[in-house]
């Protein structure tokens, strides 16, 4: 076996944590659907929340997007993208759902 520095060990622990969290979150959303444990109206919101949580885990751990100084530009860009995407996607769904209603 090779030498493993403390730093590397720490990073490995991070990634493993990410893996475990992802597995747990994924299992939770599949479980909700398959086992039918939640009331009807709660299922989809729960799936969305779990997916968002998992996305945050991925960003933080696998992509190293965090709040430290150097990476703020990337974070800002990401947030700005999400803002615009939010406007566009929400607008699309809003407009087209409304049009469908009024058909």
């Amino acid at each position: 076996m090779r030498d493993i520095s403390d730093e590397e060990r720490a990073e490995r622990r991070q990634y493993t944590l990410g893996l475990i969290l992802s597995i747990v979150l994924t299992a939770a959303s599949f479980g909700i659907v398959i086992l039918d444990v939640l009331p009807r109206g709660w299922v989809i919101p729960a799936i969305i929340v779990l997916a968002l949580a998992q996305i945050v885990v991925h960003l933080r751990i696998f992509l190293h997007i965090d709040l430290t100084r150097q990476k703020r530009e990337d974070l800002q860009l990401l947030l700005f993208t999400l803002l615009l995407l939010g406007i566009m996607a929400f607008g699309t769904l809003w407009i087209l759902a409304n049009l469908a209603d009024r058909m």
């Binding site: 989809i44 799936i47 997916a51 998992q54």
Partner: peptide
């Protein structure tokens, strides 16, 4: 993550 959640899971839920 988006696809399995929104397309498949939300689809059958």
């Amino acid at each position: 993550v988006g696809i399995f959640s929104m397309v498949y899971l939300a689809g059958v839920a």
